[in-house]
Structure formats: C-alpha cells, structure tokens
Amino acid sequence: MNPVNYLYLAALLFTIGATGVLIRRNAIVVFMCIELMLNACNLAFVTFSRMHGNLDGQIIAFFTMVVAAAEVVVGLAIIVSLFRTRHSASVDDASLMKL
C-alpha cells in the first residue's frame, strides 16, 4: 500500500481535531480533539519514518506520546478544578484572564 495514504489519513484526522477545538465548547471534547491532533501528528511521523527509512520519526512519536500523557494529566486537573468552581465545563465561561 502506498504510504502516502497514511499521510492523507493523518491530515484528515488533524483537520477533524482542529475543527473540534475551534467549534466545540465542552472542555472535555476540546481536550479529546487535541489528543486527536497529536495522534494525527504521530501517525504522520511514523509514516515519514517508514518513507525515509530511518527511525527519527518513530522516536519523535514516542516523545509526543510522553508529552501528550503529561498534558493529559495537567489538562484534566485544570478541567476538573474548573468544573468544581463553576459547575460547567464550557471553555467560553473561563475568560477571566483577559485584561
């Protein structure tokens, strides 16, 4: 199978994720969409690794997973504390940091 097809898939997944981040309000969904984008990138990296015949892409994919895991931990903690204080998981409600 032509590896380029994997790239198309990665692009598609990334676009879905990006759209989700932009149009959804629920923090959990936004969060999942970010994960989707990260995984789309991972897929692209692995594909490139395969196409170029070296392991750089795969190593980067591992890094991405580690970062994603850390991000999940911090991000979920933030969302939970937000929900606790305002009883809502909508990202638009949390706009207090503006000047």
Partner: peptide, 8 residues
C-alpha cells in the same frame, strides 16, 4: 481588545 480571554 484581541486579548478577549476566549480560548477558542
């Protein structure tokens, strides 16, 4: 004004 606080 660009700094409106909306994440999205």
């Amino acid at each position: 004004r660009l700094q409106n606080g909306f994440v999205r």
